[in-house]
């Protein structure tokens, strides 16, 4: 069994050595296809950073009629924190609210001069866990707080939340459609390139069939070859996209996204890098499988 596997591997490697041009073409095609996908993934990843940053704005603010005694307030906060959707609650006193408002006004903060520092109400700022930063999560928390005496007014930016959710839906849809399209295009191109390499070897395939090669025996080395070329293409794509990321993409995305509150532009994380190489391997394997169906007929 092990000897058989070695034989198949030797044949796959010999095939690659014997047709360096075709082998390079197949690796190049996989590399280009995957590099395009990697680029797309980098952009999506960084835009997701922006949306994650924006989603921190999704919070519920409960304004207090009267600031209760410290123990009562602590009880309220504990009660709210115990909700499964809630990440944390911070109390903003009247003074802190006034100060924050002044900071927000910036150069115009002198407009507040002479005003009573108790003019703004105290509030509880309720931050939600990341998975609940959506319309439904907010609604659940708000429903719970509505019956609470002492919480006069609840604000959670309904309009903004709806727009934000629509934007996220659009982003997901675009990612799905574009990613799917890229994947199919890559599979189509890779499968056709491998078809060309098999066309160049049709005589060998014909002779294998003639001397009694079983379909599996004939196909395994070609599938291994496709998988190896795919994996190599994945590595090349990774190196290529990292190079271009350092040279151009990082700078381009920085100018677009840093202003939106993202702290830094990131490259693909290790998991995605491994996925890219695995995708290359699968692409080469499936591409060979599709092409072989046409050429190997007993």
């Amino acid at each position: 069994m092990f000897e058989r596997l070695l034989y198949f591997l030797r044949r796959a490697l010999r095939n690659m050595r014997q047709s360096p041009f075709l082998c390079t073409a197949a690796i190049g095609t996989v590399a280009v296809s995957l590099a395009i996908m990697a680029f797309f993934a980098i952009i999506v990843l960084n835009v997701q950073q922006v949306t994650r940053h924006w989603s921190q704005e999704v919070q519920v603010v409960a304004y207090l009629d009267q600031v209760p005694q410290e123990e009562v307030l602590k009880g309220w906060i504990d009660e709210i924190v115990s909700l499964p959707e809630v990440e944390g609650v911070s109390f903003v006193s009247r003074g802190e609210a006034f100060e924050a408002f002044g900071k927000r006004l910036g150069a115009d903060s002198d407009l507040l001069d002479g005003l009573d520092k108790d003019i703004l109400p105290a509030s509880l700022e309720i931050a939600l866990k990341e998975e609940y930063r959506n319309r439904q999560g907010v609604a659940t928390v708000v429903d719970h707080l509505r019956g609470h005496q002492g919480l006069a007014d609840l604000r959670y930016g309904q309009d903004w939340l709806e727009r934000f959710e629509s934007f996220l839906d659009l982003l997901r849809f675009a990612g799905f459609v574009l990613g799917g399209f890229l994947l199919f295009a890559a599979l189509f191109i890779v499968s056709n390139t491998i078809k060309l390499t098999l066309y160049a070897r049709r005589e060998e395939l014909e002779i294998m069939v003639l001397v009694g090669g079983t379909p599996l025996f004939i196909k395994i080395p070609f599938l291994l070859e496709g998988a190896l070329q795919g994996a190599l293409g994945g590595f090349v794509a990774l190196g290529f996209s990292y190079g271009l990321f350092q040279l151009f993409l990082q700078r381009g995305l920085s100018s677009l996204l840093l202003a939106s509150g993202v702290s830094r532009i990131v490259f693909l994380p290790v998991n995605d890098q491994v996925f890219l190489i695995a995708a290359g391997t699968a692409l080469g394997f499936v591409g060979s499988l599709v092409a072989l169906r046409k050429f190997v007929r007993v």
Binding site: E203, I207, V209, L210, V211, G212, G213, P215, F217, V298
Partner: peptide, 24 residues
Amino acid sequence: GPLKIPRLRRRLGVVFQDFKLLNS
């Protein structure tokens, strides 16, 4: 069936006018 054909071919020898050798 297609799975038994290879087994038959292993018991045959076939020679062609154009040799059908692998030149590589």
